[in-house]
């Protein structure tokens, strides 16, 4: 009796069984709408304001969704043993001691560095502001590596800021909403990060691999001086990431005789996928010599006073 839907459709027509537009019409309408949305969103970036507003609506839902895991963490923290806490405390004290010692030297080194830089008239400032943020949600799209954290434009987070953890860079802020922001991890396919090999200072650009939680260094010649275990650090020449942060460690170098390029696979140094807190680092003044047009307008808040040509990028501020 129901041989095919084509035979069956006309029976839906009588007015007292009215079903509105036919499924095909609805399909055409809503598909067209989706396609228009996709084109607008990917090409014109016209929808970012709408997206930010909708994210405000999404925020309470997100809080509800996070409640069970927070409750779990809370209870498991509540029931940790005394012994465990004592151990932790001791470990942290030792770490703090070592880090205090390093910090003492850092202050004097920073001073020395600024002096030397001003002598050389090198235009690079090292002032950065960092904020602690907590991960609200891991991006649920298996194709992209993104996380959402609970700090947004209300907390003066800006697009492009670097995100680090205790061991190294983990990503970059790509979208800012009022009370949350989206971090694209360095392993995402769309993220690139300028790096330097710590051992010999060789500069390159690391690309996220998109899967397997790795990065690759393409376009390096097959005879390049890289060894397994080399540490990659940020070069700082992009004005986005502070210089000298650990990015990744070289895991494997594959040389294919057919290709002039080596295939270099690296594992991220930071715990890209295993933290609840991250640090957002804004470079408040990034001054580079390749922007001569902006060098004419020095800001009054500029920290490097003895540097005549220093200026700040206008959009580095909120």
């Amino acid at each position: 009796m129901f041989n095919s839907p084509q035979n069956f459709e006309p029976q839906l027509a009588p007015a007292f069984f009215a079903r509105g537009p036919s499924p095909l019409a609805r399909l055409a309408f809503f598909s067209a709408l989706s396609l228009v949305l996709m084109a607008t969103d990917s090409r014109i970036q016209y929808l970012s304001a709408a997206r930010a507003n909708l994210m405000v609506l999404l925020h309470p839902l997100q809080m509800i969704a996070n409640t069970p895991s927070q409750l779990y963490h809370f209870t498991s923290e509540y029931f940790t043993t005394h012994h465990h806490l004592l151990n932790d405390n001791q470990k942290l004290k030792q770490e703090a001691l070592i880090q205090k010692f390093a910090l003492q030297r850092l202050a004097s080194l920073e001073l020395e560095n600024t002096n030397l830089r001003s002598l050389l008239e090198a235009n690079q400032t090292l002032t950065e502001v960092s904020k602690l943020a907590e991960i609200m949600r891991v991006g649920s799209d298996p194709f992209t590596k993104k996380i959402i954290v609970n700090r947004g434009s209300n907390h003066e987070v800006i697009t492009g800021a670097a995100v680090v953890d205790a061991n190294g860079v983990i990503g970059q802020i790509t979208r800012v909403y009022p009370s949350s922001s989206e971090i694209t991890l360095i392993t995402d396919k769309s993220l690139t990060i300028p790096i330097q090999i710590e051992r010999n200072g060789l500069r390159a650009i690391a690309f996220g691999n998109g899967r397997d939680n790795t990065l690759t260094l393409p376009f390096l010649p097959a005879n390049v001086d890289i060894k397994q275990g080399d540490r990659l650090i940020t070069s700082g020449i992009d004005g986005v990431y502070p210089a000298g942060l650990a990015v990744a460690i070289v895991k494997a170098i594959k040389i294919n005789p057919d290709s002039p390029f080596a295939r270099i696979v690296c594992a991220p140094a930071g715990g890209v996928e295993n933290h609840r807190q991250v640090l957002i680092v804004n470079l408040t003044q990034s001054t580079t010599q390749d922007k001569p047009t902006k060098a004419k307008k020095p800001k009054s808040a500029n920290k490097v006073k003895n540097n005549p040509s220093s200026a700040s990028k206008p959009n580095a501020h909120n």
Partner: peptide, 20 residues
């Protein structure tokens, strides 16, 4: 779409086709 943070309209189109 909003929750995944991808381009607007991807899941919308997929759901539209499936529900059709």
């Amino acid at each position: 779409d909003l929750a995944t943070g991808g381009i607007f309209g991807q899941y919308a189109l997929a759901y539209t086709a499936t529900s059709f």
